[in-house]
Write a protein that binds this DNA or RNA. Structure first.
Lengths: 156, 156
DNA sequence: TGCTATCGTTGGGCCACCCAACGGCCCCCC
DNA sequence: GGGGGGCCGTTGGGTGGCCCAACGATAGCA
């Protein structure tokens, strides 16, 4: 390399910086993989959460994937328009919408999960399985400080 | 736990997801720390790179911190307007601007580095120093696949 | 002398993330 | 059983990071 593709930088020694770079690459890889099915990351995340949680309100969905209620509306709209989820008023609580995955949604989810997994494999291609687990464990403690340390069972 | 603050999700087992969450938290912490000095992350990154590289063209700066030339213009404009860097035409190559840090820029950089460091300490508060190093090493290999594995000297 | 590539700059667009407000509805307390 | 606090979905607006396209000026090379 004649030029200086990656200049030295004190910045690079900061976790936040590396984290941002790594996340950006992961985002890019996953996003373009999901694009093969016409899906975006948030849509995939929400669809996956719906598939796991069963009929669930949008608010709870939002909390589970950490997305703003505003954006959740748009995502569920899209998913519903594509016939991937159903949105039915909850008879027990008329404020809520019961969001549920459809058969088409499950098929789509299966494909996008496959694509997402492969993108993540590429993302961590340089890491051994053990290292990948190690990375995940460390990241989990960065994401939720104080949650794992004392062996707390947590929410799930 | 009555509610489900963090619902189970297959998504959460993906590196890209955890990476995104961790990066978001790091971004938030660093951004609000830097805000004390009226700086944004990109500005701090560029200023830091300028401080390290000495007089340098915007294009090279952009490559070193991985930022779009378009955005670099705005960042250097801001830094220049605040008197933190100087932008002088390069006599040897009249296409280029030689960007250099000023005395005020060095002072500002010293403070923002301090703030950034503290934010990163908080970000990795749950990690021991060894674990933090471990995380950084793993992240570096995620960011630049194939660069570290074979002991390649790289560009620097 | 041309051709190609780079540099700085301008313009536009996409996506994730966040805050504020509002009508509708539930639940609990009085 | 009536009222009030709080949650739900929805709409609106705003910011930051990232990427692509184009263009005039300039440098390097054939």
């Amino acid at each position: 390399m004649p030029e200086t593709p990656y200049a030295p930088s004190r910045i690079r020694s900061l976790p936040s910086w590396l984290l941002g770079r790594a996340a950006a690459r992961g985002h890019r890889l996953v996003a373009e993989a999901l694009a093969e099915e016409g899906m975006r990351m948030m849509h995939h995340a929400v669809l996956s959460a719906v598939g796991e949680l069963g009929p669930v309100s949008q608010a709870e969905l939002g909390r589970s994937v950490g997305i703003d209620p505003k954006d959740m509306v748009a995502v569920v709209n899209d998913l519903q328009a594509d016939g991937l989820v159903t949105r039915t008023p909850d008879p027990k609580d008329r404020r809520k919408n019961a969001v549920e995955i459809s058969a088409a949604g499950e098929r789509r989810l299966r494909r996008t999960e496959e694509l997402g997994d492969r993108a993540n494999d590429e993302l961590t291609a340089d890491l051994s399985p053990a290292e990948r687990e190690q990375l995940m464990a460390l990241l989990a403690r960065v994401v939720e400080p104080g949650a794992v340390a004392k062996g707390e069972p947590g929410a799930g």
